[in-house]
Design a protein around this nucleic acid. Structure first.
Lengths: 185, 185
DNA sequence: CCCTTACTGAAACAGTCGTTTCAGTAGGCG
DNA sequence: CGCCTACTGAAACGACTGTTTCAGTAAGGG
């Protein structure tokens, strides 16, 4: 991967964060980042390959979210949610949602397997937040699957409404439930 | 809305369930449903209007999911989840996810407002499953937001992995938490 | 019968798409 | 110098897009 290629990938990535991947087109992209379709195809081989490179690039940003760990599921959920709720991550998360949804309907193409891969990514991180004894039990699997669902569902809500307060309260509610049923009422 | 229009909309809807809306194109659609681009444009006005009609059509199917009610949040969650997990509803739910994701990145176009609208739809139904006294409190709002997140997150997981057992167990885990903290361990 | 309304087919329009062809330029190295 | 490799610009290719133009057909009501 040449220096020029990295540079253009980075620029294209910023462009994709702003404009989405759904109707990404080489000519507008190229002019926006000061290049040409000819060059993009020369460096990346094809548009599909470029999109794959962009998804891989987005994944490295997403992995930052998954770094670090807590010693129980609640800590991990709290940390991940803080990351998800941050305004500056919203473009990336929109891109993520777009790729996720698209990979559900198009089994071929550059999107293929994206949804499945991120489920495994995230479940792995949540598993790291569980005590070893619980991790391998069916109940442990169900519990981290639930934690994943809450985070993803809350993310969808947040992206649609921007209502950080309401959605954040819901996540805290879940944390209270997990911590031992001390929820109000 | 003429009879012919209803008929074609229904056929186009079935086509969209199979092929998605992302790269829907008039000519392939028209030949698949035994019509022509000319006719589709005559009856619906434009492609955007046709897509809007398809989204509205999908919404009526989705409203079936929201019909009926239980007398507490757990009942509603159980009923909705049963509907979501059914194999035969998967094409509709993929379509739903696609439209949701797309409406996040493209504020204009036929998708606009779709995500926001369904959040309100679903929250309304969940609110109907809450006691009147709880419904209007901040805690009540947080609790149904949480229920929504669990359902949506579980749905995303299910669509990506098809693992009904694991995801179903997660939802049941949440129901146990709600029912009074009687979760194992 | 005629006129209107609803609908349809065939073909063309202007535009965009990803990709290719051809023709270079620039720089390092022998 | 000459050669090779890396990169780039301009233009074209064929295929596809939503939409329009023009020309009908068929039915229903006066």
């Amino acid at each position: 991967m040449s220096a020029r290629q990295k540079e253009l990938l980075e620029a294209a990535y910023r462009y994709a964060l702003d404009n989405g991947l759904a109707d990404l087109s080489l000519r507008p992209l190229a002019t926006a980042i000061g290049s040409s379709p000819r060059v993009l195809l020369f460096l990346f081989g094809s548009k599909d390959a470029l999109v794959r490179a962009l998804l891989a690039r987005a994944r490295t940003d997403e992995l930052a979210l998954l770094e670090g760990s807590g010693d129980d599921l609640g800590d991990v959920v709290t940390r991940v949610w803080t990351w998800l709720a941050a305004e500056e991550h919203r473009p990336l998360l929109r891109l993520w949602t777009e790729a996720y949804a698209r990979s559900l309907t198009e089994p071929d193409g550059p999107w293929a397997g994206f949804a499945r891969a991120t489920v495994d990514d995230w479940l792995g991180v949540l598993a790291a937040g569980q005590p070893a004894a619980e991790r391998d039990t069916p109940a442990g699997l169900a519990r981290r699957t639930l934690a994943l669902a809450v985070l993803r569902g809350a993310l969808l809500d947040l992206l649609a409404t921007g209502d950080t307060e309401r959605v954040g309260a819901a996540v805290r509610e879940q944390l209270a439930l997990l911590r031992g049923c001390g929820f109000p009422q």
